[in-house]
Design a protein around this nucleic acid. Structure first.
Length: 796
DNA sequence: AGCACGCCGACT
DNA sequence: GTCGGCGTGCTC
């Protein structure tokens, strides 16, 4: 008799453990580890989706064992190594099994469907209920899918289920079956010559029609894109198509082969320079001794060549490789290179793939046809055959952190995955994370320097804005910076201003008593809106006029605090008349980025103002002055990683924007800050030493493990109560380990965008195993489940 | 006694 | 989540 160990697709942490089910004889041939099945669960024997993690001959469970009802998959969706990794993630991140599993099944998703059947016994039903039966269950239809029930009739359906006149049955279907290739047609719209002429002549069009045509004038658009103008774009567009002003091009979009660009490429072999070869020899030696290495990158070109060489060697040994980039939409040029070297063995995995494309890629990886994958963090969970190498590029990038449960950092997953699969991992970055360098210092991770560290130092000045203010300059920019900008404008060389704050101003504060206007409901500082001179709460929408006098001390010295991009732009236009300014911020379209880059190259701007997006997508050269306008706000983010973020962000900015002729400026109210000094000195090691000292002192990661439990509830009192309850339980349990002081009292964090009050409990410990014991006990006792609030766990 | 309701705990 | 058990308390 075969027994299957399964985990159920359900959301209760307390019962999220392995259950034994008997494999019925007729399913023995298809039932294996790694497939999804349907089982009966609970007193009502309801049908529940489950995942088989293990097949065994006997069971330790003394109670009655039920049978598996049916299988959903024909073949395993996870291999043995992936199951192990998934189970490890569940324990380490205290997540549900199915939360961890969801990362592995992204390319082979199934969806639940509910069908209803009627009970033919006679029951007393009211008029409406009888009507429902008559209407939906005519004699031909025994099965009623939920989809067919109109939303307004679902209340009646619920009544019928309660009366047991109707019962439901769940089933699961594959979302994308690559076997059933339906051609999906995508329309793109094009403004005809006639349309262009008509637009020029200012013929009479509707308001929306004009907007649509203006939009199409720039380039052809898909229906999706036009939705930005109006959701009902078709209504306005249809008459235009009829008159011949706009034409439609229909293409079968999904039918494109996955790796189109691979066509026509011959496999090239990688040729290294002398220095690269030396680094590669070091790497090869390390692959025999350890399981991972950090590439400290000073030369990006060499880095890529080493990646290619390493992948090439993996292919020679018939092993697969995966390269993880922070985001894929900006890496098309890089992909080109991969195709050049590895042709049709390359696959690209990212969020914009359709379900069908994902499944196709998944199957081709599983079959071993694709051996080189470039992708975003979730690509690490694909079913590789014989994985030999995991590469993580730009490791500092925050996109490598997952935001949904379980919250992991890709490096931790790569480390464990390589351990399970016998692969090697490379972490590459030009400025390392503090956590990574800590491992290097502790000799847990080897390091290889790629390229030469540049010897010259840029000239970066720190300017004390307090002093500036005392000397009578109340403006946003210091006199030094203004002078530099002026000379840049005269020399027709562009300047770049880095400001990490959108909008006009952050909030307003009283210069006399320091009082900041806050939201009476949420306690967060109110954001200043320029257009109607009011204050707005980000979270609850509370709005009020800016007070003339300080509501605390009555002084009239109420001022803006924190300048935003908009205010800086306004200010610059006032100071330099006729100045040509470009602003870049937030999520920009690829086309917009291209356009701005083109304008920059042709010298159309005097000053570029931007947030951290400057670091990513813009080409800067021959810059007159590169300045950090407002560094303090970033330094005072209020989390322990603030300094690290600031160091990463601003070092990258100066490294990117400056050459040896560029002047660098950092404006600050805190000129003695160590982080600012390290940015000025461009010394990572200097920064690292002071930062690690601080973290050791304060017991922050990476010197200790830090576990944060966030408690969310819509009601303030519930969130507070629950967080205290959880805190007390954790403290009690920790006392058993003699570690009662490792947990800190709940702290009110604030309000989430969804309006949930958040409290946070922090546990700091040197030993993560203690935490895992603790959590499994807390979960067994059902303490979290007993709370009304939602709890999420982050581990650093 | 009969029931309605809400809480609790088990679920292989 | 979802079901039944069980205790409480209300009504007849």
């Amino acid at each position: 008799m075969k027994i299957a160990e399964v985990f159920l697709n359900q959301t209760n942490k307390r019962i999220d453990h392995a259950y034994d089910y008997r494999v019925p004889v007729h399913l023995e041939s298809v039932t294996q580890e790694g497939i999804r099945v349907v089982v009966q669960f609970g007193i009502g024997n309801r049908r529940v989706e489950a995942f088989i993690t293990k097949i065994k001959e006997t069971t330790d469970y003394s109670g009655k064992i039920k049978e598996i009802i049916e299988n959903i998959d024909m073949e395993p969706v996870l291999n043995r190594e992936q199951i192990e990794l998934c189970l490890w993630m569940k324990t380490v991140y205290c997540s549900l099994f199915y939360e961890a599993l969801s990362y592995f099944t992204m390319a082979v998703q199934i969806k639940q469907e509910i069908d209803y059947y009627r009970n033919y016994e006679k029951l007393d039903l009211d008029l409406k209920q009888n009507w429902f039966i008559e209407h939906y269950f005519d004699n031909a239809n025994e099965v009623l899918p939920l989809k067919k029930v109109k939303p307004e009739d679902r209340i009646i359906l619920a009544e019928l289920i309660k009366k047991k006149a109707v019962y439901s049955k769940k089933s699961w279907k594959k979302i994308s079956d690559p076997e059933s290739r339906k051609k999906s047609i995508q329309s793109s719209y094009h403004l005809t010559a006639m349309g262009r002429e008509a637009l020029k002549q200012d013929k009479k069009f509707g308001k929306k029609q004009c907007e649509l045509m203006e939009y199409l004038l720039r380039s052809d658009m898909k229906g999706e894109d036009l939705k930005i103008i109006t959701a009902q774009y078709k209504k306005s567009l249809e008459p235009l198509i009829k008159k011949g002003y706009v034409c439609v091009n229909k293409t079968a979009s999904q039918e494109q082969p996955l790796n189109l660009s691979a066509a026509g490429y011959e496999h090239q072999s990688v040729i290294l320079t002398h220095n690269e070869q030396r680094s590669y020899n070091q790497y090869q030696a390390l692959t025999k001794q350890t399981s991972g290495v950090f590439f400290h990158v000073f030369d990006a070109v060499s880095k890529y060549r080493l990646f290619f060489k390493a992948i090439e060697d993996q292919l020679k040994a018939n092993r697969s490789s995966v390269v993880i980039f922070p985001e894929i939409n900006m890496t098309f040029q890089r992909m080109e290179m991969f195709y050049k070297y590895f042709g049709n063995k390359v696959g690209v995995f990212h969020g914009q793939l359709s379900p069908k494309q994902r499944t196709e890629l998944y199957l081709r990886i599983r079959s071993g046809e694709i051996k080189v994958i470039i992708g975003v963090r979730s690509a690490v969970f694909l079913p590789y055959v014989n994985l030999g190498l995991i590469i993580i590029d730009d490791e500092h990038d925050s996109s490598h952190n997952s935001i949904s449960m379980p919250q992991f950092h890709i490096t931790d997953i790569a480390k464990k995955a390589s351990e399970i699969m016998g692969a090697f991992y490379i972490i590459a970055d030009n400025i390392p994370r503090v956590a990574t360098w800590y491992r290097i210092e502790k000799k847990e991770l080897a390091v290889i320097q790629i390229g030469e560290e540049p010897r010259f130092r840029h000239a970066i000045e720190i300017i004390d804005m307090q002093k500036e203010m005392h000397q009578g300059n109340m403006g946003i920019l210091s006199r030094t910076l203004l002078r530099y900008l002026q000379s840049g404008i005269e020399q027709k060389r562009m300047s770049v201003l880095f400001i990490n704050n959108l909008g006009y101003a952050n909030s307003i504060l009283c210069r006399k008593c320091g009082h900041v206007e806050k939201c009476p409901h949420c306690g967060v500082s109110l954001k200043y809106l320029n257009h109607d001179h009011s204050l707005l709460c980000h979270y609850c929408g509370y709005k009020k006029a800016v007070p003339v006098l300080c509501s605390e001390c009555g002084s009239d010295k109420v001022r803006h605090m924190g300048y935003g991009i908009d205010q800086l732009e306004e200010y610059l236009k006032k100071v330099f008349s006729g100045v040509r300014i470009a602003t870049v911020q937030g999520n920009m379209k690829r086309s917009d980025i291209k356009k701005i880059n083109k304008s920059i190259a042709s010298g159309e701007f005097d000053i570029l103002i931007g947030t951290q997006v400057i670091n990513k997508h813009f080409n800067l050269s021959n810059i007159s002055v590169a300045a950090a306008v407002l560094i303090d706000r970033d330094l005072n983010q209020g989390n322990y990683q603030a300094s690290e973020n600031v160091y990463q962000m601003y070092s990258r900015f100066f490294a990117k924007a400056m050459d040896n002729k560029t002047k660098g400026v950092i404006q600050t109210n805190e000129p003695e800050n160590d982080t600012i000094y390290s940015i000025k000195n461009e010394s990572f090691l200097e920064f690292y030493r002071s930062e690690i000292h601080y973290r050791q002192l304060m017991h922050y990661p990476p010197t200790v493990k830090m576990i944060s439990l966030s408690v969310f509830h819509k009601k303030e009192s519930e969130a507070e109560n629950d967080s205290v309850r959880l805190y007390v339980s954790i403290k009690e349990e920790l006392k058993a380990f003699g570690m009662g002081q490792a947990v800190y009292k709940p702290v009110r964090i604030g309000v989430t965008r969804g309006g949930n009050i958040t409290y946070q409990i922090v546990i700091k410990t040197a030993k993560q195993s203690v935490f895992q014991n603790l959590m499994s006990k807390i979960i067994r006792l059902g303490i979290i489940e007993a709370l009304k609030s939602k709890v999420s766990i982050q581990i650093n």
